[in-house]
């Protein structure tokens, strides 16, 4: 059971969305039109660009029939410190970001 207003809201929203889609397809300027209409573009405003994955056709691992001469070093994750970009990220509790040595000493002690 739906409220009568639900049907009306859906009809209005669907009609508006379709009209915008048709208009933008005709204008060939989909994004500008949609931006005016406070559409999904606004949800991406924090990045300024539509997010698109890179190198998608490589996504995930593939199989190979080759061997490797790369030797897996016997690194012990329990004694290693993350040394990647996590340290560049601001952290509210620490000016130097996440992934600090202190945190690991705490865990290993």
């Amino acid at each position: 059971m739906n409220k009568p207003s639900t049907a009306a809201a859906l009809a209005f929203a669907l009609g508006t969305s379709l009209a915008l889609a048709t208009a933008s397809a005709q204008a060939g300027e989909m994004k500008d039109t949609m931006k005016d209409a406070k559409d999904m573009e606004s949800m991406e405003k924090c990045f300024g660009v539509a997010l698109k994955g890179k190198n998608d056709c490589k996504a995930g691992a593939g199989t190979s029939c080759a061997g490797t001469s790369k030797i897996d070093y016997q690194g012990n994750a329990w004694s290693l410190v993350p040394e990647g970009t996590c340290a560049e990220t601001a952290s509210p509790t620490s000016p130097t970001g996440f992934g600090q040595l202190e945190a690991f000493e705490e865990i290993s002690s």
Partner: peptide
């Protein structure tokens, strides 16, 4: 190319 335990050549099919 690698070496085995006695220093003999050990080739890896690495492609």
């Amino acid at each position: 190319q690698e070496q085995d335990g006695a220093g003999a050549p050990l080739l890896i099919d690495s492609h």
